[in-house]
Design a protein around this nucleic acid. Sequence first.
DNA 1: AGAACGATCGACT
DNA 2: GTCGATCGTTCTA
Length: 208
Amino acid sequence: MARLSREFYDGDTVEIAKKLLGKYLVRRLEDGRMLVGRITETEAYIGRCDKACHAYNYRKTERTSTLFSQPGTAYVYLIYGMYDCLNFVTEPEGEPSAVLLRGVEPVYGTETMRRLRYGDKPDTPYRRKNFLNGPGKVCKAFGITRAQNRVDLTTSEELFLCDSPKDVGLPCPDPRKERLCTGPRIGVDYAEEAKDFPWRFWLEKEEI
DNA sequence: AGAACGATCGACT
DNA sequence: GTCGATCGTTCTA
């Protein structure tokens, strides 16, 4: 099963956050069902220099210890007492850094995602535009919780990333014109000078 | 032991 | 645009 390698994650976090756009998130649920999404939005967090990062200035606690793991490790944490957020650990081991997954577009298993997100209610409104455009929404729809914290994305069957849907036996979508957009990160107004770092990246459809 | 706060979301005006 | 939900993590003592 082809997937992104350790080397992919072992490098500059901002560059990796950009390179992750257009890659594919693959999740296998315990019952064997597969879910696939195409990554459309990411953010970079770097403990060495970034006051918005949980591990700023190498702060090591029980929670942030995951960020000190080898690159290619999943970091899942709970925010606001309600929502899980999925990150991919980057940089050489010991440099606590990660890319936060903020958005995907559904590729395979959409109905299962819808049920995980909204429950069994048959006619939940499902607006394509707002379905998976937030870190809490992605985790809910993909059944990702802190149970996946510390999963090794380079060997796990339950959670990994790959370049192409072909890597998991799915057809490639038609290519679309998209541009890479850059801006400040969401929800980090407390982070002093780091709140303005342009470390949020997303894909936008080209007009016309 | 207690308190403050948060890498969000959905409901609402 | 505003606001409240909800609880684990972290720090203080």
